[in-house]
Amino acid sequence: SFVAAVVALALTTGAYTSEILRAGLQAVPHGEVEAASALAMNNRDTLRFIVIPQGVRIAIPALLGFAILILQATALTFTIALPELLSRSYSIGSNTFRYLDVLLLAGLLYLIITLPAGWLTTWTERRMARHL
């Protein structure tokens, strides 16, 4: 079940990340590429110095938001019998009959991770949008 979970999460992450990066690269204004062409830059240098830096800058907030979603999606591995935080919480709760305490602690752990990550994403979005 561990291999299946890793493969599923890796394929999902790869697909979404590539789409986010593609959208970021396509969001670079075409005038930038035309300006590079007017300066006699070859395609490789245009990509390296103009398109990729601007496209990644545009895609970073979406990538950070997606990273938070993938962290939360790891709880879905419970469905294929891979022990993770939530399933361990259920297991401890069934042994101690203190479900509420254990599940609140698990939720708090998710909150401790995702809240600062959300703040980082918001801060990055604002910082990246300052030039607009």
Rank of each mutant, 00 (worst) to 15 (best):
L105T: 13
W123Q: 14
L105R: 02
P53M: 05
S94R: 15
D101T: 11
A38Q: 07
I50V: 15
S91I: 13
T114V: 11
A4H: 00
G55S: 01
T114M: 01
V3A: 15
N43I: 13
I60Q: 00
S87M: 11
G107R: 01
G107T: 09
A4K: 08
L100M: 12
A35L: 07
S1T: 12
M128I: 15
P116E: 04
I58M: 05
L86A: 10
A59Y: 00
A73M: 08
L82Y: 10
R126Y: 09
R126F: 08
S1G: 12
E125A: 12
R130H: 11
R126W: 10
P116R: 04
T74M: 01
A27P: 03
L115F: 12
A81I: 07
L132P: 13
V3G: 10
L105F: 12
R57E: 05
A73T: 08
G31R: 09
G55F: 00
L86M: 13
L111W: 14
A35F: 06
Q26D: 10
R98P: 06
Q54R: 09
E84F: 03
F78S: 12
T124G: 01
A10E: 05
L11I: 09
L109H: 01
A40Q: 12
L11K: 05
L86H: 08
T114Q: 06
S91K: 14
T121G: 03
L109V: 12
S1I: 08
P116Q: 02
E34G: 05
R88M: 13
R98H: 13
S87E: 03
A62W: 04
L132R: 15
D101C: 06
F49Y: 15
A67K: 02
T114L: 05
A81Y: 10
F66E: 11
D101P: 05
G24C: 01
T77H: 00
G107H: 02
T122F: 14
L11R: 03
V28A: 02
I68G: 07
A75N: 00
P83K: 07
A10C: 08
F97C: 06
I92V: 14
A59S: 03
F66N: 14
Y110I: 01
Y110V: 03
P53H: 07
T121E: 10
L111D: 04
L25Q: 00
F78K: 07
P116S: 05
L86Y: 11
R130W: 03
L63K: 00
L100G: 11
Y99P: 01
G24I: 00
L104H: 05
R126K: 15
L85W: 00
L108R: 05
L103M: 11
F49H: 14
S87A: 09
L76C: 05
G55A: 04
I112A: 12
A8M: 09
V33P: 02
L111H: 04
I70D: 08
